Amino acid sequence: MSTLKPPLDRDDHLRGASSAPIQLVEFGDYECPYCGQAHRTIAALRAALGDRLGFAFRHFPLVGAHPHAELAAEAAEAAGAQGKFWDMHDLLYGDQRALSLPHLERHARALGLDMQRFADDLRSHRHLGKIRADVHSGAISGVGGTPTFFINGRRHDGAHDFDSLLAALTLDPTERLQAHG
């Protein structure tokens, strides 16, 4: 079984506490329809598990199949530089057909970002290094497609639906029942 390389650190985008007992990392692509489905599943898991779950997202744009994925990742990072990574992340997954530059600019305006800074970041590819580091992390961790999940540092090779991920995240069967019901 593959392990996450490198492990989570302060450069990762994390929802929840780094001290949460369950750490879930997704390698994702904003244009991937399966990642869009996973986004909704992750939201349900976060609601079910609360502060027991820390969720991190690493970029893995499949540029050969998804021509807008890398620019969308750059937009998420540019928003992150202004403290709005998760807001942009949610908007991108909210409408995966709206990932061209005019749509990304509309999202940035809706989030109240400094538009000059956002445009400069995209034009200069300021955050492309971070995205490439995430892709490299995925490659050395055994990621071959998206979404790919790691639970507490170990790759999850099972299904990505709510029940399957919840079962993999929680070891105690009674905890699974309480979270689901």
Rank of each mutant, 00 (worst) to 15 (best):
D90N: 06
D90T: 08
F85A: 04
L111C: 03
K84F: 10
H103L: 10
D95G: 03
L104F: 10
E105S: 12
G94K: 00
A108P: 02
L92E: 00
E105Y: 11
H107M: 11
H89E: 03
E105W: 09
L99R: 01
D114H: 14
L111Q: 01
G94D: 07
L111S: 05
A110R: 12
K84N: 09
D87F: 08
E105T: 13
R106S: 13
G94N: 03
D114N: 15
L113G: 06
G112E: 07
D114I: 02
D114Q: 12
S100G: 14
F118V: 02
R109F: 09
G94C: 03
H103Q: 15
Q96C: 05
L92M: 04
Y93I: 05
R106E: 11
H89W: 05
L101V: 13
A108F: 11
Q96K: 03
G94A: 07
M88A: 08
D95P: 04
H89C: 07
H89A: 08
L101G: 10
D90L: 04
M115F: 10
A98F: 02
L99S: 03
M115Q: 14
H103N: 15
L91I: 13
R109D: 15
P102L: 07
G112P: 09
S100H: 15
E105I: 10
L91E: 14
D114A: 12
G112L: 05
H89Q: 06
R109N: 14
R109K: 15
A119E: 12
R117S: 13
A98H: 05
H103V: 05
A119I: 06
A108I: 09
D95C: 01
L101T: 14
P102S: 06
R106F: 06
L113W: 13
D87H: 12
S100Y: 12
D114W: 09
Y93D: 02
W86L: 05
D95K: 02
R97C: 00
D87V: 08
L101A: 13
G94R: 00
D87T: 08
D120Y: 05
R106Q: 12
A110N: 12
A108C: 12
A110I: 00
L91M: 15
W86Y: 06
L91C: 13
R106N: 11
A108T: 10
A98Y: 03
M88P: 00
A119C: 07
A108D: 04
D95L: 00
G94P: 06
R97I: 00
R97W: 01
L111D: 01
R97V: 00
R109P: 08
P102V: 01
A108W: 08
E105A: 12
K84R: 15
E105C: 11
H107C: 09
R97F: 00
L91R: 15
M115H: 09
R117I: 01
A119G: 08
D95W: 03
R117P: 11
L91F: 11
L99C: 08
